[in-house]
Computed example of a mutant assay.
Amino acid sequence: MNLTLQTERLILKPFTLNDAPRVVELANDPDLARTTLNIPYPYTIDSAKDWISKHPSQIEEESVYPFAIYNQQDNRLIGTMSIRPNHRHKRGEIAYWIGKDYWGQGFATEAAKRVIKFGSDELLLNKIWAMSLTDNPGSIKVMRKVGMKKEGTLIEHFYKDRKFLDVNVYGMSLR
């Protein structure tokens, strides 16, 4: 299976530990942490190395495929897009974040479309879904642009920073 994916402006490929400093540079942003469920602030080099070091076994086990998103123009890491397949139910969850300097430029949408195609063509999934904090309009926009429809809102579904957070769930059938 080819794990290097390409779009018009992007290259998506597995992370290496060499990416850790750039991951910290991008992820160590309070605005990014506020809009995601799993990124703490501050974000440390140890956090990045720990996260990246888990990827090879996750890919080998086919439990999650985390892709580093590189801008082809300058070959710089700008974010991540992952797909977590559930083979039994033939569905996959996508999750993503993009560095703040790259927000609003269509990079997440472009990467999501390519990872959805990977889920359909390579992983043979029937459905793709994603969730977003209800107060993250950028992520909701990405899900809508790739063709997902809102399936519902999970009230007080996550606990982060000493408060309960609501999430919207979006999905789409591939077949």
Rank of each mutant, 00 (worst) to 15 (best):
Lys49Phe: 07
Asp74Leu: 04
Tyr102Ala: 13
Tyr41Trp: 08
Leu37Val: 10
Ala111Asp: 12
Gly79Thr: 05
Arg91His: 06
Pro42Cys: 04
Asp31Ile: 11
Leu37Met: 14
Asp31Arg: 13
Gly147Glu: 02
Gly119Asp: 02
Trp103Met: 09
Asp31Asn: 09
Tyr65Ser: 06
Ile45Pro: 04
Thr80Ala: 11
Ala27Phe: 00
Pro30Cys: 06
Phe67Asp: 07
Leu133His: 01
Asn126Ile: 02
Thr80Tyr: 05
Trp103Arg: 06
Ala111Glu: 11
Lys117Pro: 03
Arg114Pro: 03
Lys113Asn: 02
Arg144Gly: 10
Leu123Val: 00
Lys149Tyr: 12
Ala48Gln: 05
Asn136Ser: 05
Lys113Met: 08
Thr44Gln: 11
Gly119Met: 00
Arg144Tyr: 10
Thr35Cys: 07
Ala68Ser: 03
Tyr43Leu: 08
Asp50Glu: 07
Leu37Glu: 12
Asn86Gly: 05
Glu122Trp: 02
Ile69Lys: 10
Ile116Ser: 01
Thr134Val: 09
Thr36His: 05
Leu124Arg: 03
Ala112Trp: 03
Asp101Ala: 15
Leu123Ile: 00
Thr36Ala: 10
Gly138Met: 12
Ile45Asp: 06
Pro85Arg: 09
Tyr102Gln: 15
Tyr70Gln: 05
Leu32Arg: 00
Pro56Glu: 03
Gly104Tyr: 10
His89Gln: 12
Ser82Ala: 12
Ala33Asn: 15
Pro66Tyr: 03
Gly99Gln: 11
Pro66Cys: 06
Ala111Met: 08
His89Asn: 14
Gly106Arg: 15
Pro42Phe: 00
Thr35Tyr: 05
Ile45Glu: 07
Lys149Val: 13
Pro42Gly: 07
Gly104Val: 10
Arg91Gly: 03
Met131Glu: 13
Lys127Met: 03
Ser53Asp: 10
Ala111Cys: 09
Lys141Pro: 10
Lys100Asp: 04
Asn136Leu: 02
Ile83Arg: 08
Glu93Ser: 04
Glu60Lys: 15
Trp103His: 14
Ala108Asp: 00
Trp129Pro: 04
Asn75Leu: 08
Pro56Met: 07
Gln73Gly: 05
Asn126Val: 00
Trp97Phe: 09
Asn71Arg: 15
Met143Ala: 09
Pro85Gln: 10
Gly152Ile: 14
Pro40Asp: 14
Gly104Phe: 14
Ile83Lys: 04
Gly152Thr: 11
Ala95Trp: 08
Leu124Gly: 05
Val146Leu: 11
Gln105Arg: 08
Arg84Gln: 13
